[in-house]
């Protein structure tokens, strides 16, 4: 079996919570990511969905090597990131790129577009200087921008165009995996659909893989091949986008989908889930969703359900299954 492009195995990331400046001790741990496993194949999009504080962005930071996992492994083409040496790491950083939510803050306002988009080529080395400009023009063209824009500054562009620039920067190193952290959340409805279409086109043309981090289930539905739903640091359900949305199994997934579905006039919204996401420093016992779950049983408070396969390509962590 060929290894997946990227695979996470039982990854944990715990952040210490300290009190006081000098003599303060460690007062607890936030388990931002707690025993999470997933894989992404070439040309595939994995959607990681969940509400704020569920650990989806920390997962993205782990994949981007902006954080080191406390435990567990992340494998790129079967090689553990931890065991990679200097050259391999540089290659990894070149082929795994990111696009963030707000292009306003992710593009340096004092650099020209050409410099912004070309920078990864210079940083990652090995790219002939003279060809940078050509490559920049090529990727700008790929994201449907005029290559002449290379001489302009980010403030001269609209939000949608800025997100295209960010995407061009992610593509310039011939990357294979792009981490998309809420790529369309800051955009207007009419611009949002343009960017979603562009992301799909680029994937088809270049065989890209995406790790899509979003709280927007509808966006994830349209971009993802497979979806993993996270709650308080854990994956509670995973499946292909088609089956997961057609037939959500976990009560949390059901609640999320019901909450986001545009309710037509006259449709009762009786699916509102009560309560709020608990403090991740002190997650509930047993199943972390049980205090808010409409179907919770006595067992849910005591025993944490494990993520298990209930059908091919379908995993869920719930005592009901």
């Amino acid at each position: 079996m060929t290894p997946s492009l990227l695979e996470a195995r039982n990854v944990r990331k715990h952040f210490p919570v300290t009190k006081g400046l000098i003599l303060g001790g460690n007062v607890g741990w936030v388990r931002a990511v707690d025993d999470v496993s997933f894989r992404i194949d070439a040309g595939e999009t994995l959607g990681l969905v969940g509400e704020s504080g569920c650990g989806k962005s920390t997962t993205a930071r782990l994949v981007l090597l902006l954080e080191q996992p406390s435990d567990g492994q992340i494998l790129y083409e079967g090689v553990n990131l931890k065991e990679m040496s200097g050259d391999d790491l540089r290659r990894y950083r070149g082929t795994v790129q990111a696009v963030f939510q707000d292009p306003q803050s992710s593009l340096n306002p004092r650099m020209r577009v050409g410099g912004i988009v070309g920078e990864p080529l210079e940083v990652n080395g090995g790219f002939p200087r003279g060809e940078v400009r050509e490559r920049v023009a090529e990727v700008l063209h790929n994201v449907n921008l005029d290559p002449a824009f290379a001489t302009l500054y980010p403030h001269e562009f609209s939000g949608g165009q800025r997100q295209r620039i960010a995407l061009a920067r992610a593509l310039v190193t011939h990357s294979r995996l792009i981490v998309l952290d809420e790529p369309v959340a800051s955009l207007d409805a009419s611009i949002r659909s343009q960017i979603i279409n562009l992301l799909k086109d680029l994937q088809d043309e270049h065989g890209l893989s995406y790790l899509l981090i979003t709280h927007d289930l509808a966006v994830s539905r349209h971009l993802s091949h497979r979806v993993a739903v996270m709650y308080l640091g854990r994956i509670v359900e995973e499946g292909t986008a088609d089956t997961l949305y057609a037939e959500p199994l976990h009560p949390y997934t059901k609640a999320l989908i019901a909450a986001a579905l545009p309710v037509r006039a006259g449709t009762p919204d009786d699916t509102v889930v009560a309560g709020e996401v608990p403090n991740p420093m002190n997650p509930p016992s047993g199943c972390r969703f049980h205090p808010r779950c409409p179907l919770a049983m006595a067992r849910c408070a005591e025993e944490e359900p494990v993520l298990q396969e209930v059908a091919p390509e379908r995993r869920v962590a719930c005592h009901l299954f």
Binding site: A189, S193, I196, N197, L217, A218, R221, Y245
Partner: peptide, 16 residues
């Protein structure tokens, strides 16, 4: 142009 969950389309009819 609004992504919806109850139906999936391959391309959005987006406003240029």
């Amino acid at each position: 142009s609004v992504p919806r969950m109850d139906r999936k389309v391959h391309r959005f009819p987006s406003i240029e």
